[in-house]
Write a protein that binds this DNA or RNA. Structure first.
Lengths: 138, 138
DNA sequence: ATATGTGATGTTATGTTATTACATTCTTGC
DNA sequence: GCAAGAATGTAATAACATAACATCACATAT
């Protein structure tokens, strides 16, 4: 049973549909792409997607990629709602694939930097842009 | 003489106007805010702003903040066009202020992470969200 | 069983950010 | 002068996101 299915019980109908679309996708999707995919399931307005995404992000099941204005299903067991400083993404600018990484050393550095300037960290947006291994070698 | 004025010679009229707006601002500005500020100088369409911003970002005089869809004047002597992996921003969610930091330790970690997954890094987007020292204490 | 509160949903309209397409003007080197 | 390339002007449209308000579904207290 996948993480998505395990959490599914708690999701509303719209949330499940959006989660399903993101889980099946092989990369990030924009809200409007999700909307188009879900029209056959009765979706009609962007807000239906955005509202579901808001909750899914809150639950840690979905991440928003700021540099793409897109959303991607969490690739970890779960990110929970409380570790928004600990995750980063490597986004391939050729094939569009996204790898999600969690790294404590990075978190340490980020926290230390924040502390140097007395900045109280609530969330960190870390998105690496470049070429994935596959695209690099092709 | 400020960095902005020093570089000014090489900028076109529209680029100078946009750079001026960003330099005078005490924080990040959206492209449309810049447009409104420059209407009195003859600006009429978003593209005039976006085209100037594109060049200014290329020259390293301006940074784009992905999590705000906004732009901010570079706070360093200059960022050049070639160090797009080495800069990060601390964005206060209360007052909107932005601090620009350059940190080699962070860069090392990011490079090491990228290398772990054989990811070829071309740019890194690192934006810390939280409260600045001033807002924290008030 | 009814009332009421809360969260989710539906719908329309609108606001905000960014780009496409094409015409014109301004430089710069020859 | 004049050709090539950069910058600009303008209109239209695409893409992303939210406001405002009505309705529905369901839990639970009376």
């Amino acid at each position: 049973m996948s993480k998505y299915e395990a959490s599914n019980t708690d999701l509303t109908k719209n949330q499940s549909l959006v989660m399903g679309a993101l889980s099946q996708a092989d990369g990030p999707l924009s809200a409007y792409t999700i909307l188009d995919e879900l029209r056959e399931h009765g979706f009609r307005a962007p807000l239906q997607v955005y509202r579901a995404l808001e909750k899914l992000v809150e639950y840690g099941l979905v991440h928003r990629l700021e540099s793409l204005n897109a959303f991607v299903a969490c690739q970890h067991t779960s990110c929970g709602g409380d570790r928004k400083e600990n995750v980063l993404f490597a986004i391939c600018e050729k094939c569009g694939s996204v790898q999600e990484l969690a790294n404590d050393r990075l978190l340490d550095v980020v926290k230390s930097l924040a502390s140097d300037i007395e900045f109280t960290l609530t969330e960190s947006v870390i998105e690496l842009r470049g070429l994935c291994a596959t695209c690099k070698s092709n």
